[in-house]
Design a protein around this nucleic acid. Structure first.
Lengths: 231, 231
DNA sequence: CAGTGGTCTAGACCACGCG
DNA sequence: GCGTGGTCTAGACCACTGT
């Protein structure tokens, strides 16, 4: 009663775990795999889709499926310096959409700078961050290089005083643009982190949308519990 | 160049947003929808899959697809009392597997109590939590009722002193068992939170695995930033 | 029972990557 | 050019739901 594509995925997973299919190895073409498992191509693709979401394989259009190296999981926040990430930052000025204005607590059409940070790990993109700062708060055009994947240092460079940030984390599918930037499939779940950054007085100074591929990133949160007796 | 199933999803999304398809309304059968949009049934299912991952529709085997009420997003942590959740807790004793023992920093086969907390919202399951407490730390058989969806109060009831917890949040697909418990599709992304709970002395006192449906839950994290100048 | 979604088949055509 | 994955078609069969 287990679904057909699950059985196929289980078998391939076993082959990868046992080392029969070593890291970096190219899998047989999908048509051959389908023939081998006696399933149709859509069914085989469903199986590969699962493995991809687990970060076990990687697909390349026109080249084939490859066994991924055990994913170097990126953790957010706290890169801790151990990370070897190459971060590309670009900035644009734009007028706030209704949606964006609501999040920044400004008015639509107010001028805002958008920073797009794309971080690359050893061989694949690791995170995509969109940071929005109203001109009324700060305005720097040339973003620093060698920066944090989350755009933190952009704020520091701009002299923005951040006192608290609120993160809302959800799981969803990437948009077409996100999938392309991160080089993931449209069906690989992503962690979406919506971060609102406030100043001391509660004023919202920036809004950020971070998208992390579910197969190679995780969010780490440490909470210290104060002794408090609650009923 | 937009994919066919994307176009269909866009149109349906528009119909829902505009109120043409009101909340609670049943959609036309998939075969009819497929005929209407001139697509095959698998393609139409891909479209519905997207809407389901967004929490816009709900599927029921043998009944049809229904427009969901604007999802009452569950936030973790901090239920804040506003939530009206019905929580079912069950407990079992078991011997730690190798994997579980590693997380609890105990040895395999050590006795552990497993608590399974399933919380229900207005009309659908909202969260699934597995909490593991070694017998060496505490042992209560009858869990309290009307409890927190995360099992927090089980720890309090057991007299466990928790000082800090570390959460690792990832996005992935549910296992078959998780999908069934939460009444979601196998292709609806979930937030998986792995929580390690430590005592004052750093000893690990419990391990929890929380699974939240991506279409109706989110993780909220508030960080206060201390003034610290880092290069 | 009839109607519905869940899953699968066995192809087809296109776009991309590489030689 | 050729081989690859990306997407889609037009069905089929089964399991589940409600009457």
């Amino acid at each position: 009663m287990t679904a057909r594509h699950q059985q196929v995925a289980d078998d391939l997973r076993r082959l990868i775990a046992s080392g029969t299919l070593p890291v970096g190895e190219r899998l047989a073409p999908e048509t051959q795999l389908a023939a081998h498992y006696r399933v149709s191509t859509p069914t085989l693709r469903d199986a590969l889709e699962l493995l991809r979401a687990e970060g076990l394989i990687e697909k390349f259009q026109g080249r084939g499926n490859y066994v991924r190296r055990p994913p170097e999981r990126l953790t957010y926040p706290r890169a801790d310096g151990t990370e070897d990430l190459h971060v590309t930052v670009s900035s644009t000025d734009l007028a706030a959409t209704e949606d964006l204005a609501a999040r920044l607590r400004t008015r639509p059409n107010d001028a805002v700078t958008e920073y797009v940070c794309l971080s690359h790990g050893a061989d694949s993109p690791q995170s995509l961050a969109h940071l929005y700062v109203p001109h009324a708060v700060a305005r720097i055009q040339a973003p620093p290089i060698g920066a944090s994947p989350w755009g933190d240092d952009i704020l520091t460079a701009a002299g923005v005083l951040a006192a608290a940030s609120t993160d809302q984390v959800t799981a969803r599918f990437p948009t077409a643009a996100e999938a392309q930037s991160l080089r993931i499939g449209a069906r690989t779940p992503v962690l979406a982190v919506e971060r609102t950054i406030a100043a001391d007085d509660g004023q919202i100074v920036a809004y950020a949308l971070l998208v992390l591929p579910g197969d190679r990133a995780e969010v780490a949160v440490v909470t210290r519990i104060d002794k408090k007796a609650e009923a």
